[in-house]
Design a protein around this nucleic acid. Structure first.
Lengths: 204, 204
DNA sequence: GCAAAATAAAAAACAACGTTCATAATAATT
DNA sequence: AATTATTATGAACGTTGTTTTTTATTTTGC
């Protein structure tokens, strides 16, 4: 046997990733297995191992795709004032998390076997989410040095992420509507608080 | 076979949980298995299934114990001013997370199979972490209603949690020392920001 | 054009997993 | 002391990710 070149490796990659994503729409990642993915796309486990290296790397590929989609959604935001733009980012972030709940969890809960750190490319993707916040912040705080802007962007993003994560599993409160209020409260009040400390300019 | 009553069920519970915790000091949860835990404490898989119900419930028990230890550490804090007390809580929280990195991750990444929600007792334990923040906040904002205090406590705690989590996996920055700065920035500036909005009292 | 070498997908084998079930050994009861 | 009720155990089951072997196809060399 060997239907050679019925699909290219790149096609199989795409099929497998799509199969995982589709499964995650309705079922958890624990119900999934390499064998099921292979069966779904009409292939055999060892073929996927050959292509992805391991089941773990297949999941990592799904995680990366999700991360790219999230980044793309954030890029779609049309900047207005810095503060409003960051608030808009927080909303988009949390809405994406709730719309792609299981993929989102995969991104942040996936860890490599043997306690190896995630690939640097993956960490880089996550960190790239901050960059837009940074540029908005340095507009809002023109006097702040690079270091200070970096700290602020991470505080803002860490808060947005934490609230979203806890809310996603009902660990914070029950309804999603509260989450939006809390995100707004977080972004708005933190920026206001920093404004006093740096007795800086800008009102909106 | 049946060394009956060589250990009580409660003793075996304790032994198994300790074995998991000890393993998690040095190795990830993926390297662990029910069979290994059983072997470590000189028992057999089915015995642990009888006692805990499933491997998942054993891990849940470890998670609960960790949660209780974290809560205990937070209770140890001697209150000074509300703001300083909350800042101290943030530090203790992050220090606990780094000292018990894998157990901490277990608490927040463990989810039930079949997408069932976590037991309410477990969710209650997590939410109880907020209660002390709430009492500190209502001291600081005596005019705020219960609802407002609840929102603020969750924003504060969500931020603390998010920063800690991201930092724990190197998803935020590299060194731990930055984390403390960010936690202080978060707590301090958010409270300051809220203070203006409610043009309230209290300076420290 | 055809035989030989290379390749690639599938099949089978492997070790380990969580869990279930029947068994054998102990404790409790009569 | 014999019988019944417990209870930990050991074997079995179905499934997992991965490795290795086999087999069919493609490419190469003459």
């Amino acid at each position: 046997m060997a239907r050679r070149k019925e699909h290219t490796h790149e096609q199989i990659r795409h099929m497998a990733i799509s199969a995982v994503v589709e499964h995650l729409q309705c079922h958890g990642v624990d119900n999934l297995s390499l064998r099921k993915v292979a069966a779904t796309i009409g292939y055999v486990p060892s073929t996927l191992i050959n292509i992805f290296g391991s089941y773990q790397y297949l999941l990592l590929a799904v995680s990366e795709q999700t991360l790219l989609q999230l980044a793309a959604q954030l890029q779609l935001i049309k900047p207005t004032t810095p503060k409003q733009t960051i608030e808009q980012m927080a909303l988009v972030y949390s809405q994406f998390a709730f719309a792609n709940r299981r993929c989102f969890r995969l991104v942040f809960e996936l860890s490599m076997a043997g306690d190896q750190p995630l690939p640097v490319a993956h960490l880089g993707l996550i960190k790239s989410l901050f960059s837009d916040v940074e540029s908005q912040l340095s507009q809002y705080f023109p006097l702040a040095c690079e270091q200070e802007v970096e700290t602020m962007s991470r505080v803002l993003w860490g808060g947005i992420h934490g609230l979203t994560c806890l809310s996603l599993d009902g660990k914070l409160f029950e309804t999603q509507s509260c989450l939006q209020d809390m995100l707004m409260s977080h972004v708005s009040s933190y920026i206001d608080g920093m404004s006093i400390k740096r007795n800086s300019n800008a009102a909106n």
